[in-house]
Write a protein that binds this DNA or RNA. Structure first.
Length: 266
DNA sequence: AATTTCCACAACCGCCAGTGG
DNA sequence: CCCACTGGCGGTTGTGGAAAT
């Protein structure tokens, strides 16, 4: 049994939207709100697929859309975020108010992708002697939630009293648990009192070294600041009964801060 | 001026995750 | 647990306009 298509393709308009269609869609959403995209075309009297309506609304008709003229600041931010997040356009777009994932994706594919490729074949996690996980792709330093495994911990300027053993679960089984050597507390776990240490988690998932990104000051001020990362670290490590973690938490954290920002704006 | 090539971007497609019955 | 529905995401394609020949 195959998946039911989102709509019957017969008798539907395709290709570029007309001003008239845009008007119908805008007015319908103004009255009825977003959602229920499958039924929307029929109710609104549009000869379009529901998905197409959704896309049109999200990418072009929403009132808060900012179009064209991506500034150099935005461009720089996109590059940094792409280095951190990879092709997660919706997440990147979430950090750029008024920009859509589609616009950023297109901009990357036509401009930044080439630019970055030309100008950057430099450092990689693989050059770090601590790296143990093979790197599947060399062309980008990205975090991929599905492949996330935390493989190392880096202490930057560790204070003597903060040197400790650290255990992190890097997989689902006990066999996949890594113990970071060093001196530390008895139970092998670590907590992060406010401001007590400069500690970074290195997600060597074959794609990214977070500490490398930070050391290169790739992360923009106020975006993934030290405070933000410390907050994340506390969230994920302060509970000593549950000190295991993985990269999902970072992605989730970024997404949650995004939601918070969104809520704060509205 | 006509034709070809290149580029930007809007739109489509297929897949996946979340959710509710 | 299974299944269908829905919304969302990222990759890819199609097309119109600009630039080059």
């Amino acid at each position: 049994m195959g998946r039911r298509p989102c709509c019957s393709k017969e008798g539907l308009n395709r290709g570029a939207w007309t001003a008239h269609e845009d008007k119908i869609l805008k007015e319908y959403i103004k009255v009825h709100g977003e959602g229920r995209w499958r039924n929307l075309p029929k109710r609104a009297g549009l000869k379009r697929c529901g998905k197409s309506c959704r896309l049109r609304w999200l990418n072009y008709l929403r009132p808060d859309i900012k179009r064209g003229n991506i500034s150099s600041d935005e461009e720089e931010l996109i590059i940094r975020l792409h280095k951190l997040l990879g092709n997660r356009w919706s997440l990147i777009a979430g950090r750029l108010p008024g920009r859509t994932d589609n616009e950023i994706k297109n901009y990357w594919n036509t401009n930044l992708g080439k630019k970055v490729k030309d100008g950057n074949q430099s450092s990689s996690c693989s050059q770090n002697p601590m790296a143990t996980v093979p790197i599947p792709r060399q062309d980008s330093n990205v975090v991929r939630a599905k492949a996330s495994k935390c493989s190392k911990v880096v202490f930057i300027n560790p204070k003597p009293q903060m040197q400790m053993q650290m255990q992190m679960q890097i997989g689902n089984t006990e066999a996949e648990t890594a113990v970071m050597e060093g001196s530390g507390n008895d139970n092998g776990f670590v907590s992060f009192p406010n401001g007590e240490t400069d500690m970074l988690i290195d997600f060597n998932v074959g794609d990214v070294c977070l500490s490398e990104l930070l050391n290169e000051e790739l992360l923009p001020d106020g975006m993934f600041s030290d405070e933000l990362l410390k907050e994340w670290a506390q969230t994920n490590f302060a509970d000593q009964d549950n000190a295991s973690t993985n990269l999902h938490s970072l992605i989730s954290f970024l997404e949650s801060t995004e939601e918070t920002q969104t809520l704060g704006q509205s």
